[in-house]
Amino acid sequence: MMNSFYYKGKKIVVNTLIHLFLISVAITCLYPLLWMIVSSLKTQDMIFKDISLIPHQFRLENYVLAWKEGGFGGNFFNSIIYTVSVVFGIVIISSMAAYAFSRLRFAGSKFLFIMFMAAMMIPIPGSFVALYVLLNKLHLRNTPIGYILCMINVGLSTSIFLLKTFFDKMPKELEDAARIDGCSKIGIWWHVALPLAKPVLAVVIVFNALAVWNEYILALIIFDNRKFMPLQVALQSFQGEFVTNYPLLMAGLTITALPIILVYLFMQKYIIKGVTQGAVVG
């Protein structure tokens, strides 16, 4: 009887502590989002005077202003095009490359793989000037295709690493069965490897979609023409050297965050599966 009380009490205490910890972590994650939404509904001076989380007046027109002044219309479309193209490119190229590194035996495969992994160590801003000069020589500067190719290149190393780790663990018997059924190498990659890699692909898609969606420095360097700029560049127009237009910036950030939150929610179950299957661990 005493033991039962002891274990029940212990369970309640442990659960309470765990929940308190998780609630505090959740609050620290959600509070900035909440502040962003609340601030997007205030005026500039109210942000500095009124720190309450419920604004006295809801200025929904901040969203309209942010959309118009930031020129979000075209930029929003650009960001969608860039994100879809880059993620698609990364998924196709990295899954093929990872499958080849994992299954095919060819001269220099290890060296090539090490080179890809080494590319992960290079900080992206360090390569901006080199990328600019390269694109300039290829006449791809100030073109969306140049930007898309650069961003595919940026995302390849990590994606190849994640997918190769998964393909290495994949049972070879499945491929043998497909081969007996008459599948070519490409057929095995498409019909066997890719469907099995769905959880890892979900991780690859979300990580890269986030990276492309939030990227603006490379875009700013490569593009001279504002009509090619992604959404994040438009957000910078609310942030001055000394003065920041917080209501419009926060409204813009809310608009910007929504699609990527939706992508995450849509792919949540695959991501969790991917992470728990060890997709993101070495």
Binding site: R141, I217, I221
Partner: peptide
Amino acid sequence: ELYAPSDAYSQKIRAAAQGIN
């Protein structure tokens, strides 16, 4: 043509100088 923030602008100017653009 506005390129903000200033850090990114500086990088753009340096890159453009290298490419004579």
